[in-house]
Design a protein around this nucleic acid. Structure first.
Length: 420
DNA sequence: TCTGGGGTCCTAGGACCC
DNA sequence: TCTGGGGTCCTAGGACCC
């Protein structure tokens, strides 16, 4: 049996944890650049505000006082996530963190008849310890946990915990679950299935395997099996990420090559830092850029350029250098760029890195490693940052709009805890 | 005027092998 | 007009997730 612990409206709940005056109000958290809604309180959902709604469409509601918005504050969300996960980890035999606000709990060893009460106590414990409301769905497969979690969230009567632990409950739950809500059936898949007469999860489960296979591929068969109670989505064994991406949209269009180069250098430096944090090296650095696709009055251009390295690396100098080379190949004069990013791939553990037989200057690599270490040390010190001259002079958030930050934006965790 | 960021997995098709 | 059969590996792009 698994339990899926999922924080309710996570980013909004994080904002509320330190701003109790937001309780009971319609609140939306915006994406980077104050672009679109990425989290909504129940009150905001009740106003039919959809995920991904552009901020400018919400502005009238903000001005009338009906809605409160906040720019996203990922430092805060990361800190609160870590605290929630720590409480979960210390309470069950094992957890698998699935995303910033979700984790699967392994519930073996907890007697069947005590599972619900155990999880109910866990919900209270997380709330007491962090201020974050969480819901838990209990079921024999991960896909059914998602279904159970939906019920736990939607109906207050469950008080945050719902279990699908009998054949009868499973059948009834699937009948009440619209096909579009099923994990693994996306917004493209749902209309297609409805056209074929599949309205609910129960309808899907009622079709033969071959029907699923031919229309939905192997992913569909997995979902089908999981909904029937056969666990096929196992544990993610490979901890190491296969790609790391740092990308941003800009508040204003960028026409200047040197300007874009300094921002891409920043993104590359961030990728290198993430690699070092993971103890990884990457064998390929890629850069992409794009114009504003909503401006059909302007010429459009997007491009993605790979730059495979002779030797895998996590050095800031090497990753930035490779990114700048790739950018040179991407760049086209005369376009206003709205977005750019750096992706590093072909990631392997630092220890198992292949040497370069024809390396010309091994000492160079060592010097670069020392410089990277220095950069990491500076970063961890208070607000100070050591950067290459090719990078932006300002913060990583330079050129990104964040006009609705909560006042606690710059606070560190200890300050936040005191206030709490 | 203003429209996010960071991931994973699967599939189809091409290149190549015997 | 006719022109095999059976593999593997890689990659780009699509679909999905939060």
């Amino acid at each position: 049996m698994y339990g899926l612990a999922d924080c309710n409206n996570f980013f909004v709940s994080c904002e509320r944890a330190f701003q109790p005056e937001l309780e009971g109000r319609a609140v939306v958290v915006l994406s980077n650049n104050d672009g679109v809604a990425v989290a909504r309180s129940n009150e905001a959902k009740a106003m039919s505000i959809k995920m991904g709604t552009p901020f400018f469409q919400l502005r009238p509601m903000v001005e009338s006082g009906a809605l409160v918005v906040r720019s996203s504050n990922y430092k805060l969300y990361g800190d609160l996530s870590a605290r929630v996960m720590n409480i979960l980890r210390s309470s069950v035999p094992k957890i698998e963190i699935y995303s910033i606000d979700e984790a699967y709990l392994h519930l073996e060893g907890i007697p069947h008849e005590k599972r619900r009460e155990f999880c109910a106590e866990l919900v209270r414990k997380v709330r007491r310890g962090t201020g974050i409301p969480v819901s838990i769905g209990i079921a024999p497969t991960k896909t059914l946990c998602k279904v159970a979690n939906h019920f736990a969230k939607r109906y207050p009567g469950y008080r945050g915990v719902c279990a699908i632990d009998t054949e009868d409950k499973r059948r009834r739950a699937l009948e009440l679950t619209p096909i579009g809500e099923v994990w693994g059936v996306g917004w493209r898949g749902a209309p297609k299935l409805r056209k074929l007469g599949v309205e609910t999860a129960a309808d899907l489960v009622g079709r033969p395997e071959a029907w699923i296979r031919s229309r939905m591929g192997v992913g569909g068969v997995k979902t089908w099996l999981e909904l029937r109670g056969t666990a096929v989505i196992g544990e993610e064994t490979d901890e190491r990420r296969q790609s790391i991406c740092t990308s941003r949209s800009f508040a204003e269009l960028v026409y200047d090559k040197e300007e874009l180069k300094s921002r891409v250098s920043d993104f590359a430096a961030m990728c290198a830092k993430k690699l070092r944090k993971d103890g990884s090296v990457a064998g390929c650095v890629s850069v992409f850029l794009g114009t504003n696709r909503f401006r059909d009055d302007l010429p459009q251009y997007t491009h993605f350029e790979h730059n495979p390295l002779k030797q895998a690396t996590n050095s800031t100098i090497s990753v930035v250098g490779a990114a700048v080379q790739a950018l040179e190949r991407c760049w086209r004069e005369g376009y206003g760029y709205k977005r750019a990013g750096v992706v590093v791939t072909d990631i392997v553990p630092e220890e198992s890195m292949q040497g370069d037989l024809f390396e010309e200057d091994p000492a160079m690599r060592e010097r670069e490693a020392m410089l990277s270490e220095l950069i990491d040390r500076f970063d961890s010190a208070d607000g100070q940052m050591l950067k290459l001259a090719s990078q932006n002079e300002g913060l990583y958030s330079y050129g990104i709009r964040r006009e609705h930050c909560s006042k606690l934006f710059t606070s560190d965790w200890n300050e936040l805890m005191e206030i709490h």
